[in-house]
Design a protein around this nucleic acid. Structure first.
Lengths: 207, 207
DNA sequence: GCATTTAATTTGACACTGTCAAGATTAACA
DNA sequence: TGTTAATCTTGACAGTGTCAAATTAAATGC
């Protein structure tokens, strides 16, 4: 009820249950976190029986994969949107990238958790689909970082791939430590981001 | 049975059940991962009833806290042991630190997950004890990094605290991405560590 | 040495969970 | 219209964490 199920043409038998499930799951997760996600409550939300789900997803995990995939999509388009802006110095772009990454993660903590959670990535068996969706996100980062490297912002003597992996790790680590409550002083988040930017720059110019 | 319960003086009523629980939990977690940890199986392992646990821990979460606390202890002493070695250049020490951190995390992936898992840190209510144990680990890192900064290895114009936070984030991010299977090419782990070291150094000398 | 208090442990029960097999219902297609 | 295939439901199973009340053993006071 009041679910975003392309209201109206409810064919009664199945009104695109698959995306309805992903919708409902995403909402509930953003609100109450992943730990509180019960398939049965989900089914209740949509008004369908508890095991209808299994005709669209092999697993609870498969459903979470779909949620995560949507997360990567969302992240990528917000990043690309931001980078549309023109007349911005490379140095400023890098700064925006770092701050933007952390800000997005903090704004969607539960989703972020699922996107990188162990159960999803650990079993290679699971979902080539997710890899195909997450890969462009990584690729986009790699391109950005290659550019910055060529412009002399970053180190020259390390491969762009490795630097991308390390920079992503830095962002991911910051995001996780903040989200998980290890770094619990939210007043200094911007400071940490700025420090990260300063440490990345090969020239170490002043901000 | 065959549990490491200071065998012998089993007072039958209670033979230090608390540490026996933490022992058994640690073992089972290292072997089968946290997802497969059931309190009831745990109780069976020790030969005690399923709810005996609740007289020593408020929660399943409280038990995990104890496991995590032990992890921080373990990490700190392995780090300190390594740093006992003398006649090592600061630059080499930094390199060892990075590689050592990642190696330890990979060697104890499940334990590492618990040490930083959300449920443990999120609710401040839970366990000041854990904070008191995790803090020295952070403090130790902070000292190391302050030294390296004073020796000119790291940036001068950023506070040591911030740099520690960022460096820890880098290590944590790397560890998590590897453990969780996002970076699944284990052949390049050392390369990533070396790249991280190179990026940290303010002088960007060649390795 | 016995009685009483206190701590440790167990039993029974509750409300959940994810998942599956078998049956019912509806859409799609020939 | 009749048949096939997809979709959804019901009933059930084996788990889970947690709690209240009852049981047992240790510790303490006299």
């Amino acid at each position: 009820m009041a679910q975003s199920v392309s209201a109206g043409n409810q064919t009664y038998h199945h009104g695109d249950l698959r995306t309805a499930l992903v919708d409902a799951a995403s909402q509930r997760i953003e609100r109450e976190g992943i730990a509180a996600l019960s398939l049965r409550k989900l089914a209740d939300d949509i008004g369908v029986s508890r095991s209808a789900l299994y005709h669209h997803f092999r697993d609870k995990n498969a459903l979470l994969n779909a949620v995560a995939a949507r997360g990567f999509d969302q992240w990528l388009s917000m990043t690309q949107d931001r980078d549309q802006a023109q007349n911005i110095k490379a140095h400023e772009r890098l700064k925006q990238f770092v701050h933007g990454y952390i800000r997005w993660a903090i704004a969607h903590p539960q989703l972020y958790d699922i996107m990188f959670g162990r159960p999803i990535w650990k079993h290679k068996l699971a979902d080539e689909e997710l890899k195909e969706i997450a890969f462009p996100a990584f690729q986009y980062m790699l391109n950005l970082i290659s550019d910055w490297q060529q412009q002399g912002l970053l180190l020259q003597n390390e491969p762009a791939l490795r630097q991308t992996q390390v920079i992503w790790a830095t962002l991911h680590g910051l995001a996780k430590l903040i989200i998980d409550g290890v770094y619990d002083d939210s007043a200094h988040i911007d400071d940490m981001c700025n420090c990260a930017v300063a440490m990345l720059l090969s020239q170490h110019r002043e901000t």
